[in-house]
Design a protein around this nucleic acid. Sequence first.
DNA 1: CTGACTTGCGCC
DNA 2: AAAGGGCGCAAGTCAG
Length: 553
Amino acid sequence: MNRVVLVRRSEATVEARECSDDGTAVRVRRLPAADLPGFVRERERSPVRWVWDDTTRWYPALLAAGVRVERCTDLRLTHAVLRRSPFVDQSLLADDETGGWDALAPVTATDPALFPLDDPADRLDPVAEHERHQAALAASAGRTRLGLLLAAESSGALVAAEMTHAGLPWRADVHECLLTELLGPRQKPGQRTATLERLLTEIRATFRAPALNPDSPGELLRALQTAGLTVSDTRSWTLEQLDHPGIPALLEYKKLTRLLQANGWTWLDTWVRDGRFRSYFLPGGVVTGRWASNGGGALSVPTQVRPAAVADDGWRFVVADVAQLEPRVLAGMSADTAMAEAARSSDLYQGMVVGGAVATRAEAKVGMLGAMYGGTRGESGRMMPRLARRYPRAIGLVEAAARAGERGEVVHTLLGRGSPTPTGAWSERPVELGEPPDEVDSREERDRHRRARGRFTRNFVVQGTGAEWTLCWLADLRNRLWRLGGTGTVSQRPHLVFFLHDEVLVHTPEHLADEVVEAVRGAAAEAGRLLFGAFPIDFPLDVAVVGSWGDAD
DNA sequence: CTGACTTGCGCC
DNA sequence: AAAGGGCGCAAGTCAG
């Protein structure tokens, strides 16, 4: 399949350099920037891979012109993966421009950098960078898996741009009803709503603190202590443990102020336009390879307000999430057949009970979370020996990752994404006897850092490989949705509108909902095959066809 | 006053 | 019910 590298030659001119598989240029043409959408639409009639510096700099304008692309290589993202992969000979990537590629940041519409007069991307040569990537990949011992990761990462960039373009259908009127019901009518900024005022009066009375401002952690802590409560912080979970008549009102107050501040009327004004919640998803935005988001706290939309996400008339949401993604990924990547057997039931934790590893589902869950996150204290720590005996490969894999991290080493995901190189003296330097204590951390502190590093690398391999599974799932789903057919642009057909680590929302015309469900399941099966080949591990989905996100669970 | 840091809490 | 990993965001706090 031919590739077409797109290069900005000036504000008004684009160069399209078409290459065959072996890299020889087939055709180079210059065209006015305004003609680009038409050119891309035409060239998409036969298979092609677009190569560009950064999807956030090219794709939004194409989507706005009604043009979808099938596949691309996003050099900003592939550069980031290659630069940190332990399977890449870094000398093959070295160039004067390496620092520029390292520093390249995505652009969002809220950035003044949307139409930057002086975009740092324009000082970089995508043709040369792409050639370095090809060379580094070809020379890599992990080229097959790494190649899959680069393709999946680039595909994720397309999905992210399309999701921002389409937006998540959001009913401001439903959201406002919900706010008014819980908080009372909207007040001016800085003023408490009726419900908050009522709770405030009650809190001040029961704690005998007539001027108390519960929004100030310091003031609140002192008030609690004056009331005879022994607490050292004001977290809700801490307060729940206390026995005092003022606590319920205080907890309610904290819950409602949180709603008001994070997802209240201001949030609606800022992030919801024309019936869509539009935020920015940033593929590869997290070190593990998970996505980050920008704007409106997209990845932490509380379940409380999800009822306001409502499909258009005649349309539905297909909401799908993977049950217990990370333990399944761990079973697959470690080829632990005993754990894969437990995963055969739709509830992996119950499967561990049936398999005789642990006595209860609760033990299975807490034990696995501890294994993947590094919990050593209490119940999860006590489960570890039994889990390690029963699932030696799975537990062995995370233990090895933890020990590597403690030694200051880099670990990697199944497809070859590397963890960041640790910085700081604590990682390697041995304890020097007699060193002045004010120049080095104490031994205790450095041990604490080492263990924290171990927990990070332990989690990195699982969370990161989980992110690779979901990338493959998204990429394949995106293509299946397009093939369901129909006419028109991305947002006129079944299309992805939201993605939350292990959950997707598809907005679809109602009559295609059943086919979308099939597509979502088919893509999950394909993701499992891509990552784990014939190894028998499956990824059951919870799928719901609903009119509102709030009805999905 | 601004900017950096901390606290607390939402999501997975 | 959290713990243990990864985030974003808003408000409070504090130093300059």
